[in-house]
């Protein structure tokens, strides 16, 4: 059992939880994720890591309530326990292993959408702490859906917030903002996009045009998360990859996003059936 040490509402339907899991906290690196099981009957739910604190032994997850399992999770409060918390899973971001001097020369931009902002944070912090400047573009539906602005602004060189309805920051999509920045003369050598599959697809289309190498972090359906079930398979450069062990980060320009989106909807009907029962 894994204790929920803290719980905080970040926006409507979006909240963060600090989970006591010392082994995971100690090994977590940028780009990795965890799997959570809320209770005995629960699903194995893959979630992104927003933060980790080795000293406290905690890992922070950020969750948006969508289906049955996230609703169950939302009902848990600080002091409650989760059935299982396993990780860190997946391969850490490639730059973690790169030569630091080379990395310092690189101009990086992060594009985050919705709760995808959460897994962006440990990446931005990791890079900033190594002395690498990064720009961050965050997209949300409206002002009240913007999360982690304060946390990110501490580490990002420039933080650009975009809202679909124009209630805060730049009025428009993250892709429009990225395009604008490049047109204004910003030069980027690498883009890392994390968010809804559809956003990642359009960021990828744009950066292909702009000739910016891009990495996306995919979030397909998973069961075990250790390579065993193959539910998370995605086509990358005409090859089948397992997002849980080969990813979750891949070269955006060779990911088959349409197939990935189609596969993501595989259990939509069943998920709804469960929701109604609850």
């Amino acid at each position: 059992m894994y204790k929920i040490v803290e719980k905080e509402m970040l926006a409507e339907n979006i909240y963060s939880m600090d989970i006591l899991a010392p082994r995971v906290a100690e090994s977590a690196q940028p780009g990795q994720f965890v799997i959570v099981i809320v209770d005995e009957e629960g699903e194995r739910l893959p979630l992104t890591i927003c933060d980790y604190d080795v000293e406290k032994g905690t890992v922070q997850i950020v969750v948006q309530t969508m289906g049955c399992s996230t609703k169950k999770l939302e009902k848990k409060d600080a002091g409650d326990y989760l059935h299982s918390f396993v990780g860190p899973l997946g391969v850490p971001s490639e730059y973690v292993h790169e030569n630091l001097e080379e990395l310092k020369k690189r101009k990086m931009v992060f594009v985050a959408g919705g709760v995808g902002t959460a897994p962006t944070f440990p990446q931005v912090r990791w890079l900033a702490e190594k002395g690498i400047d990064v720009d961050v573009i965050v997209g949300a539906k409206s002002k009240d859906k913007v999360i982690l602005e304060e946390k990110l602004s501490k580490y990002a060189k420039n933080l650009y917030i975009c809202t679909d309805d124009g209630s805060y920051g730049f009025h428009g999509m993250v892709t429009a903002k990225l395009k604008e920045l490049v047109e204004e003369g910003k030069e980027y050598d690498q883009c890392i996009a994390i968010g809804p599959m559809i956003m990642m697809k359009f960021v990828s289309l744009l950066t292909e045009e702009l000739n910016i190498p891009t990495v996306v972090s995919l979030n397909p359906i998973m069961v075990d998360g250790t390579g065993m079930c193959g539910a998370c398979r995605v086509t990358v450069g005409n090859e089948t990859k397992f997002a849980c062990v080969d990813g979750p980060e891949f070269d955006a320009h060779i990911v088959d996003f349409d197939e990935a989106m189609q596969r993501q909807g595989q259990y939509k009907k069943e998920e709804c059936a469960i929701k109604e029962e609850i």
Partner: peptide, 9 residues
Amino acid sequence: TNVVVGRTI
């Protein structure tokens, strides 16, 4: 349980 050797440790 929940320890993935190669990842968790």
